[in-house]
Amino acid sequence: MGQEPARAKGGHNRIHGLINLAIQNFVMDSYGPQMWQAVAHAARLPDAEIEAMLRYDLTLTEAVLGAACTALNQTPDALLEDLGTYLVSHPNTEVLRRLLRFGGVNFLEFLHSLDELPGRAQLAVEDLDMPQLELVDLGHGEFRLNVRSPIAGFAPVMMGVLRAMADDYGALVLIAPVGRHGDGADIAITLLDSSFAAGRGFALAAGGAGGGG
């Protein structure tokens, strides 16, 4: 899904419905149901509704992303980064934001919890396709996140997620793509100030009286 279209390697040719559903909801919530109808039609989806708990052919995901890029006049990288931002910052994806906030009490802890993120996600949905994530601490607030997956396109999504999570924690962060190699991609993260702004609240209790949300 990056510059090159999403491509399966090593027989990995099915993808979890939750990922397709994320794309559907992103297009619907950001650009309206008509836009989704147009994308679904252009991608020749058999059903207008993606089913979250079924697995789909990866070609369907590629077709949807391709159609969305054409309809929205965006590059795949830009679209996927917007998708990552949407997953954290849109009110309809509050559940996901909360789950990510369980990673740490501040952005630094969150960064260090990223190695565990695939494991956490698979605790909830065991067959969810997740990239391998590895954080390298280069010192002086410089980090490098290696994103590795047989399914391309996770790296730009992670860029969007990181930017939105930095906002969520109130951290001031620079995030830039570094390069790709094989089935991996590196993201450079520079943490300038971990408490730059107030950030959004988070209480452990869901919808609790603790003022989080």
Binding site: V105, A203, L204, A205, A209, G210, G211
Partner: peptide, 8 residues
């Protein structure tokens, strides 16, 4: 965690 607003 709700009653005492406990955090990590």
């Amino acid at each position: 965690v709700r009653d005492y607003t406990l955090s990590a």
